[in-house]
Protein backbone atom coordinates (compact mmCIF):
# COMPACT_ATOMS: atom_id res chain seq x y z
CA UNK A 1 0.00 0.00 0.00
CA UNK A 2 2.75 2.39 1.05
CA UNK A 3 4.80 1.46 -1.96
CA UNK A 4 1.94 2.22 -4.29
CA UNK A 5 1.37 5.69 -2.91
CA UNK A 6 5.07 6.44 -3.10
CA UNK A 7 5.18 5.35 -6.71
CA UNK A 8 2.16 7.44 -7.58
CA UNK A 9 3.63 10.48 -5.83
CA UNK A 10 6.82 9.94 -7.82
CA UNK A 11 4.78 9.78 -10.97
CA UNK A 12 2.98 12.95 -9.95
CA UNK A 13 6.31 14.69 -9.45
CA UNK A 14 7.52 13.59 -12.87
CA UNK A 15 4.39 14.84 -14.59
CA UNK A 16 4.36 18.05 -12.59
CA UNK A 17 7.95 18.89 -13.51
CA UNK A 18 7.31 17.92 -17.11
CA UNK A 19 4.52 20.47 -17.25
CA UNK A 20 6.75 23.14 -15.66
CA UNK A 21 9.48 22.53 -18.24
CA UNK A 22 6.90 22.64 -20.99
CA UNK A 23 5.62 25.99 -19.72
CA UNK A 24 9.18 27.33 -19.63
CA UNK A 25 9.68 26.20 -23.22
CA UNK A 26 6.63 28.24 -24.20
CA UNK A 27 7.99 31.42 -22.57
CA UNK A 28 9.78 32.64 -25.67
CA UNK A 29 6.75 31.89 -27.84
CA UNK A 30 4.53 33.78 -25.41
CA UNK A 31 6.96 36.71 -25.32
CA UNK A 32 7.03 37.16 -29.08
CA UNK A 33 3.24 36.78 -29.26
CA UNK A 34 2.68 39.36 -26.51
CA UNK A 35 5.08 41.85 -28.09
CA UNK A 36 3.35 41.54 -31.46
CA UNK A 37 -0.15 41.71 -29.97
CA UNK A 38 0.48 44.77 -27.80
CA UNK A 39 2.32 46.74 -30.47
CA UNK A 40 0.04 45.87 -33.38
CA UNK A 41 -3.10 46.39 -31.34
CA UNK A 42 -2.19 50.03 -30.71
CA UNK A 43 -0.11 50.67 -33.82
CA UNK A 44 -2.34 49.35 -36.61
CA UNK A 45 -5.43 51.44 -35.68
CA UNK A 46 -3.16 54.50 -35.47
CA UNK A 47 -1.81 53.85 -38.96
CA UNK A 48 -5.39 53.38 -40.17
CA UNK A 49 -6.49 56.64 -38.55
CA UNK A 50 -3.59 58.65 -39.98
CA UNK A 51 -3.81 56.80 -43.31
CA UNK A 52 -1.15 54.30 -44.34
CA UNK A 53 0.05 56.42 -47.25
CA UNK A 54 0.16 59.58 -45.17
CA UNK A 55 1.95 57.79 -42.31
CA UNK A 56 4.58 55.88 -44.30
CA UNK A 57 4.99 58.34 -47.18
CA UNK A 58 4.35 61.69 -45.48
CA UNK A 59 7.45 63.85 -45.13
CA UNK A 60 6.17 66.08 -42.37
CA UNK A 61 6.29 65.05 -38.71
CA UNK A 62 4.58 67.82 -36.76
CA UNK A 63 2.68 66.26 -33.87
CA UNK A 64 1.28 69.61 -32.74
CA UNK A 65 -0.43 70.07 -36.11
CA UNK A 66 -1.49 66.45 -36.25
CA UNK A 67 0.92 65.70 -39.09
CA UNK A 68 2.42 62.27 -38.65
CA UNK A 69 4.59 61.35 -41.62
CA UNK A 70 7.47 59.07 -40.69
CA UNK A 71 9.06 58.93 -44.15
CA UNK A 72 12.06 61.03 -43.00
CA UNK A 73 12.63 58.61 -40.10
CA UNK A 74 12.42 55.51 -42.30
CA UNK A 75 14.88 57.10 -44.73
CA UNK A 76 17.04 58.19 -41.78
CA UNK A 77 17.20 54.65 -40.41
CA UNK A 78 18.04 53.22 -43.84
CA UNK A 79 20.70 55.86 -44.51
CA UNK A 80 22.57 55.51 -41.23
CA UNK A 81 22.38 51.71 -41.44
CA UNK A 82 23.79 51.82 -44.97
CA UNK A 83 26.49 54.18 -43.72
CA UNK A 84 27.30 51.82 -40.86
CA UNK A 85 27.62 48.97 -43.34
CA UNK A 86 29.97 50.98 -45.55
CA UNK A 87 32.16 51.80 -42.55
CA UNK A 88 31.88 48.58 -40.59
CA UNK A 89 31.77 45.75 -43.12
CA UNK A 90 35.16 46.23 -44.87
CA UNK A 91 36.97 46.84 -41.58
CA UNK A 92 35.13 43.96 -39.92
CA UNK A 93 35.83 41.43 -42.67
CA UNK A 94 39.48 42.45 -43.01
CA UNK A 95 39.90 42.12 -39.25
CA UNK A 96 38.16 38.74 -39.27
CA UNK A 97 40.45 37.39 -42.02
CA UNK A 98 43.45 38.63 -40.08
CA UNK A 99 42.25 36.99 -36.86
CA UNK A 100 41.36 33.70 -38.54
CA UNK A 101 44.43 33.29 -40.75
CA UNK A 102 47.33 35.61 -39.92
CA UNK A 103 47.18 36.55 -36.26
CA UNK A 104 50.08 35.21 -34.14
CA UNK A 105 48.67 33.25 -31.18
CA UNK A 106 50.16 35.60 -28.59
CA UNK A 107 48.61 38.65 -30.23
CA UNK A 108 45.34 36.75 -30.61
CA UNK A 109 45.20 36.35 -26.84
CA UNK A 110 45.06 40.14 -26.56
CA UNK A 111 42.97 41.11 -29.58
CA UNK A 112 40.20 38.57 -29.16
CA UNK A 113 39.29 39.65 -25.61
CA UNK A 114 39.37 43.27 -26.81
CA UNK A 115 36.84 42.45 -29.54
CA UNK A 116 34.66 40.60 -27.02
CA UNK A 117 34.85 43.56 -24.67
CA UNK A 118 33.85 45.82 -27.54
CA UNK A 119 30.68 43.76 -27.91
CA UNK A 120 29.94 44.21 -24.22
CA UNK A 121 30.36 47.98 -23.96
CA UNK A 122 26.90 49.51 -23.38
CA UNK A 123 25.48 51.58 -26.20
CA UNK A 124 25.05 54.56 -23.90
CA UNK A 125 28.84 54.57 -23.40
CA UNK A 126 29.39 54.44 -27.16
CA UNK A 127 26.97 57.33 -27.53
CA UNK A 128 28.79 59.28 -24.84
CA UNK A 129 32.13 58.61 -26.57
CA UNK A 130 30.63 59.71 -29.89
CA UNK A 131 29.26 62.89 -28.30
CA UNK A 132 32.49 63.99 -26.63
CA UNK A 133 35.04 62.68 -29.17
CA UNK A 134 33.61 62.17 -32.67
CA UNK A 135 31.19 65.12 -32.65
CA UNK A 136 33.92 67.71 -31.84
CA UNK A 137 36.16 66.19 -34.54
CA UNK A 138 33.29 66.57 -37.03
CA UNK A 139 32.75 70.16 -35.91
CA UNK A 140 36.39 70.97 -36.59
CA UNK A 141 36.42 69.23 -39.95
CA UNK A 142 33.13 70.35 -41.43
CA UNK A 143 31.77 73.08 -39.17
CA UNK A 144 28.16 73.07 -38.01
CA UNK A 145 26.94 71.17 -34.99
CA UNK A 146 28.90 68.01 -35.78
CA UNK A 147 25.79 65.95 -35.17
CA UNK A 148 24.97 64.51 -38.55
CA UNK A 149 24.47 61.42 -40.66
CA UNK A 150 28.21 60.90 -41.14
CA UNK A 151 28.87 60.93 -37.39
CA UNK A 152 26.06 58.46 -36.78
CA UNK A 153 27.27 56.18 -39.59
CA UNK A 154 30.82 56.12 -38.26
CA UNK A 155 29.77 55.38 -34.68
CA UNK A 156 27.29 52.69 -35.75
CA UNK A 157 29.95 51.23 -38.04
CA UNK A 158 32.21 50.91 -35.01
CA UNK A 159 29.44 49.42 -32.89
CA UNK A 160 28.65 46.63 -35.37
CA UNK A 161 32.33 45.68 -35.75
CA UNK A 162 32.39 43.01 -33.01
CA UNK A 163 29.26 41.32 -34.40
CA UNK A 164 30.69 41.17 -37.92
CA UNK A 165 34.18 40.15 -36.76
CA UNK A 166 32.99 37.34 -34.47
CA UNK A 167 30.49 35.79 -36.89
CA UNK A 168 32.81 36.14 -39.91
CA UNK A 169 35.77 34.74 -38.00
CA UNK A 170 33.93 31.58 -37.02
CA UNK A 171 32.64 31.21 -40.60
CA UNK A 172 36.20 31.52 -41.91
CA UNK A 173 37.47 28.99 -39.38
CA UNK A 174 34.78 26.53 -40.45
CA UNK A 175 36.21 26.39 -43.99
CA UNK A 176 38.23 23.14 -44.34
CA UNK A 177 41.96 23.76 -44.00
CA UNK A 178 42.56 21.84 -47.26
CA UNK A 179 41.11 24.71 -49.29
CA UNK A 180 43.74 27.05 -47.93
CA UNK A 181 46.58 24.55 -48.22
CA UNK A 182 45.54 23.52 -51.72
CA UNK A 183 45.71 27.12 -52.80
CA UNK A 184 49.12 27.56 -51.16
CA UNK A 185 50.34 24.42 -52.93
CA UNK A 186 49.29 25.91 -56.24
CA UNK A 187 51.68 28.74 -55.54
CA UNK A 188 49.30 31.44 -54.35
CA UNK A 189 50.52 33.68 -51.54
CA UNK A 190 48.87 33.24 -48.12
CA UNK A 191 47.05 36.56 -48.54
CA UNK A 192 45.73 35.61 -51.95
CA UNK A 193 44.68 32.17 -50.69
CA UNK A 194 42.79 33.71 -47.79
CA UNK A 195 40.95 36.28 -49.90
CA UNK A 196 40.42 34.35 -53.14
CA UNK A 197 39.70 30.89 -51.74
CA UNK A 198 38.78 30.87 -48.03
CA UNK A 199 36.71 34.05 -47.96
CA UNK A 200 34.45 33.04 -50.91
CA UNK A 201 33.97 29.63 -49.29
CA UNK A 202 32.80 31.32 -46.09
CA UNK A 203 30.53 33.69 -48.02
CA UNK A 204 27.19 32.75 -46.51
CA UNK A 205 28.51 32.84 -42.94
CA UNK A 206 30.08 36.24 -43.49
CA UNK A 207 26.84 37.49 -45.03
CA UNK A 208 24.95 36.23 -41.96
CA UNK A 209 27.28 38.32 -39.81
CA UNK A 210 26.59 41.37 -41.97
CA UNK A 211 22.82 40.86 -41.68
CA UNK A 212 23.15 40.55 -37.91
CA UNK A 213 25.09 43.81 -38.00
CA UNK A 214 22.31 45.46 -40.04
CA UNK A 215 19.81 44.35 -37.40
CA UNK A 216 21.92 45.82 -34.66
CA UNK A 217 22.48 49.11 -36.51
CA UNK A 218 18.82 49.68 -37.38
CA UNK A 219 17.70 48.90 -33.84
CA UNK A 220 20.33 50.98 -32.08
CA UNK A 221 18.80 53.77 -30.08
CA UNK A 222 20.78 55.38 -27.31
CA UNK A 223 23.99 55.96 -29.24
CA UNK A 224 22.21 57.34 -32.30
CA UNK A 225 19.94 59.72 -30.44
CA UNK A 226 22.94 61.48 -28.92
CA UNK A 227 24.89 62.14 -32.10
CA UNK A 228 22.60 62.15 -35.14
CA UNK A 229 21.09 65.62 -34.72
CA UNK A 230 17.52 64.28 -34.73
CA UNK A 231 15.97 66.69 -37.25
CA UNK A 232 12.81 65.08 -38.58
CA UNK A 233 13.45 66.00 -42.21
CA UNK A 234 14.76 64.00 -45.14
CA UNK A 235 18.51 64.74 -45.20
CA UNK A 236 20.05 66.28 -48.32
CA UNK A 237 23.67 65.52 -47.57
CA UNK A 238 25.90 63.45 -45.33
CA UNK A 239 26.38 66.48 -43.13
CA UNK A 240 22.68 66.98 -42.42
CA UNK A 241 21.20 65.80 -39.17
CA UNK A 242 18.92 62.77 -39.32
CA UNK A 243 16.35 61.22 -37.05
CA UNK A 244 15.97 57.45 -37.04
CA UNK A 245 12.80 55.55 -36.15
CA UNK A 246 14.35 54.49 -32.85
CA UNK A 247 15.32 58.06 -32.00
CA UNK A 248 11.81 59.25 -32.85
CA UNK A 249 10.38 56.90 -30.24
CA UNK A 250 12.84 57.61 -27.48
CA UNK A 251 12.73 61.39 -27.96
CA UNK A 252 8.98 61.86 -27.77
CA UNK A 253 7.51 58.87 -25.96
CA UNK A 254 8.11 60.51 -22.58
CA UNK A 255 5.57 63.29 -23.10
CA UNK A 256 3.37 62.11 -25.99
CA UNK A 257 -0.33 61.42 -25.55
CA UNK A 258 -3.34 60.35 -27.62
CA UNK A 259 -2.76 60.05 -31.35
CA UNK A 260 0.81 61.29 -30.99
CA UNK A 261 1.59 58.38 -28.65
CA UNK A 262 -0.19 55.96 -30.98
CA UNK A 263 1.86 57.29 -33.91
CA UNK A 264 5.07 56.60 -31.95
CA UNK A 265 3.92 53.06 -31.21
CA UNK A 266 3.13 52.71 -34.91
CA UNK A 267 6.72 53.81 -35.59
CA UNK A 268 7.74 50.91 -33.35
CA UNK A 269 5.54 48.61 -35.42
CA UNK A 270 7.28 49.69 -38.63
CA UNK A 271 10.64 49.13 -36.95
CA UNK A 272 9.52 45.70 -35.75
CA UNK A 273 8.45 44.76 -39.28
CA UNK A 274 11.87 45.81 -40.59
CA UNK A 275 13.54 43.66 -37.93
CA UNK A 276 11.30 40.67 -38.64
CA UNK A 277 12.24 40.85 -42.33
CA UNK A 278 15.95 41.06 -41.44
CA UNK A 279 15.53 38.09 -39.05
CA UNK A 280 13.84 36.10 -41.79
CA UNK A 281 16.74 36.78 -44.18
CA UNK A 282 19.16 35.71 -41.46
CA UNK A 283 17.44 32.42 -40.71
CA UNK A 284 17.02 31.61 -44.42
CA UNK A 285 20.74 32.15 -44.89
CA UNK A 286 21.58 30.02 -41.88
CA UNK A 287 19.38 27.22 -43.16
CA UNK A 288 21.12 27.42 -46.54
CA UNK A 289 24.47 27.22 -44.79
CA UNK A 290 23.63 24.07 -42.86
Amino acid sequence: MDKVSKASSGKFKETFMYILFLIAACASILSVALICIFLFQRGIPAIAEIGAGEFLGGTRWKPLQNLFGIFPMIIGSIYVTAGAIIVGVPIGILSAVFLAKFCPPKLYGIIKPAVDLMAGIPSIVYGFFGLVVIVPIMQNLFGGSGKNMLTASILLGIMILPTIINVSESALRAVPEQYYEGSLALGATPERSAFAVVLPAAKSGVLAGVILGVGRAIGETMAVVMIAGNQAVVPDSLLDGVRTMTANIVLEMGYASDLHQDALIATGVVLLVFILIINLCFSLLKRKES
Partner: peptide, 15 residues
Protein backbone atom coordinates in the same frame (compact mmCIF):
# COMPACT_ATOMS: atom_id res chain seq x y z
CA UNK B 1 10.75 32.62 -31.56
CA UNK B 2 13.87 32.63 -29.38
CA UNK B 3 15.91 33.69 -32.40
CA UNK B 4 13.36 36.37 -33.25
CA UNK B 5 13.37 37.58 -29.66
CA UNK B 6 17.14 37.97 -29.67
CA UNK B 7 16.93 40.19 -32.75
CA UNK B 8 14.27 42.58 -31.47
CA UNK B 9 15.79 46.00 -30.62
CA UNK B 10 15.72 47.07 -27.00
CA UNK B 11 13.58 50.13 -27.73
CA UNK B 12 10.82 47.82 -29.02
CA UNK B 13 11.05 45.85 -25.77
CA UNK B 14 10.80 49.15 -23.95
CA UNK B 15 7.69 50.17 -25.90
Amino acid sequence: TAETLSGIPSIVFGL
